[in-house]
């Protein structure tokens, strides 16, 4: 499905679009292909989910969302299939995944990210998750980020 030209387009655009009036033409000329081919490939990748979106990727800290809490939960395996989507559907949960436990170091199998302008805001959101998961959860923690060390996004072919 993904061919060499698709991957070449990923490589020239993954760090960002050229900030010129005709950015797709600029990509095309750097690849030596027709602009309409580049646009068709991008449109196809958008349509089938290889591109999640095209637009602005903000730094949440710069927007004032300095409290970034990764809440992790030890949910009964029998209940996670039903509860995971309900946690993910909470309007303030921005990412929600089931991941493997790694006992004994890591007992948690559900990750739900909550952002806020202050920790109290995140704590209130985590409290709402706790109320939803109730007795199916044996333990949970919130890991607050203290620093962004890198945020480049994927870099293929480097």
């Amino acid at each position: 499905m993904t061919d060499a030209l698709d991957l070449a387009i990923v490589r020239v655009s993954q760090a960002g679009l050229p900030l010129v009036p005709r950015p797709y033409h600029a990509l095309a000329s750097s690849l030596g292909v027709a602009p309409k081919e580049v646009m068709a490939r991008l449109a196809a990748m958008l349509a089938d989910g290889r591109i999640r979106r095209i637009g602005a990727v903000p730094n949440h800290y710069a927007l004032g969302y300095t409290a970034n809490g990764m809440s992790v939960w030890d949910i009964d395996d029998a209940a996670i299939g039903e509860l995971g989507p309900r946690v993910g559907a909470l309007p303030f949960v921005t990412h929600c995944y089931r991941r493997p436990r790694r006992p004994p170091e890591w007992p948690y199998n559900l990750f739900a990210m909550a952002h806020g302008r202050a920790r109290a805001e995140v704590e209130e959101k985590v409290g709402r998750i706790a109320a939803l998961v109730g007795g199916t959860c044996r333990a949970h923690e919130v890991l607050y980020s203290t620093r962004v060390l890198k945020k480049t996004g994927l870099r293929f072919g480097s």
Partner: peptide, 12 residues
Amino acid sequence: GVLTRFGPLFDA
């Protein structure tokens, strides 16, 4: 630094 990038977000 308000934006970290402007462009496509690819799904690896």
